[in-house]
Design a binder for these strands. Structure first.
Lengths: 213, 213
DNA sequence: GTCTATAGGTTGATAGAC
DNA sequence: GTCTATCAACCTATAGAC
């Protein structure tokens, strides 16, 4: 709310204007660092000091931009992570017209990223969801919403290929749940076997509902 | 490094001694409280003080029984949780001869417990797995082992019903992954729809491999 | 062996300078 | 409005009394 007021009118000319950078970029940098650290290390293991040193901002800025402290920061961080994950998923689902191929490509995509980095980043919010479902109602609801959005993205892809809406909604949830579980297990096992098994059985699971594979 | 050297050797000689009862019972109480809190609240959100006040033991006992501190305690807590979860799973899988019915009963069982308490207890170690896979190698390996044991329990049930070993191993992993993901989503959504969807599709998934349902 | 008291460090949050 | 300096509370871990 307050940070929009300071946008200089001169932005029209340049995108990377210095004056504009100072205002929103400080906030954005804190949020980006928080989103990354909450996904990988989790909510409780990530201190505010760590977020600030990672983002290069001083402590005062955090409480200016997020007066309600850590919880408010986490709420926005979850929403930012949600956008990144959605963007990723949307791109990979649109690579193929066939939902089976598209979903298998999506899983393969996650597996490749995981083998490179071995950590959660723009992949899942399961960690923060499990950490907060019992202790913070606002954060729980934010995570719940993320899960619902992802489910609906899978369902939408299935509906587009002709699967009846009622069935597609169930299958979307099932696929989302399978992938979420496979991510947890794959990270713990330090190999992507679980993801590959899911990928393989997505075929068997969806084939009966689809005319031509 | 040796986590196992600390255990007093006197246990071997005496079994029903009073002094021993006190010792191991105190130890057991700390461990039980730790296992419960780590599952529900997680590793990072649970302080040692909380574990001790929950178990009724003083702080000194903890470092006497677990000289390597929180990590060693967590390692044994994971193994204790593993035993509880295995016991539960074994009981529910043996309720029915048919693997489909047995697994569906298992899921229903988890769903019922979850609706009652709305928290992880003897249900899953996903939370501590995601919290520690990146920060503690011993804890990651302990969680990895738990996942493998559970997978194998499902696989064993499938093999017993005549499914070829190679296929059964994959399906066991798939079922474990689905249930793990459904638990995470169900807890976050505060309803067991995800678990019920998995239960329904376990039937579709396994039927092709089984002669008579 | 069992436990109390305390050390040393880090956390989330705040007050107030400019 | 922006940020530095500081706070009390909590954390894990330890030293040493009995």
């Amino acid at each position: 709310m307050p940070y929009y007021t300071y946008r200089p009118v001169t932005i029209l000319s340049r995108k990377d204007d210095d004056s504009m950078k100072c205002k929103t970029e400080s906030r954005e940098k804190i949020l980006t660092a928080a989103a990354m650290l909450f996904q990988i290390k989790g909510f409780n293991a990530t201190g505010l000091n760590e977020i600030l040193s990672e983002s290069g901002s001083p402590k005062g800025s955090l409480y200016y931009y997020f007066p309600n402290g850590k919880e408010e920061l986490a709420l926005e961080a979850i929403q930012l992570s949600s956008k990144s994950i959605q963007k990723r998923l949307n791109a990979s689902l649109n690579k193929y017209a066939s939902p089976i191929e598209a979903i298998q490509f999506t899983i393969k995509n996650i597996a490749e990223d995981m083998e490179k980095a071995n950590k959660l980043k723009d992949i899942s919010i399961s960690l923060i969801a499990l950490e907060t479902y019992f202790s913070s109602e606002p954060l729980r609801e934010a995570c719940k919403e993320v899960f619902e959005i992802l489910e609906n993205m899978y369902s939408k892809k299935l509906i587009e290929s002709g699967i009846p809406k009622k069935i597609a909604l169930e299958l979307g949830m099932l696929i989302q749940v399978m992938i979420e579980g496979a991510i947890t297990v794959s990270l713990t096992q330090r190999n992507v076997t679980a993801l590959l098994v899911v990928s393989k059985h997505v075929d068997i699971l969806l084939s009966p509902y689809i005319q031509s594979k």
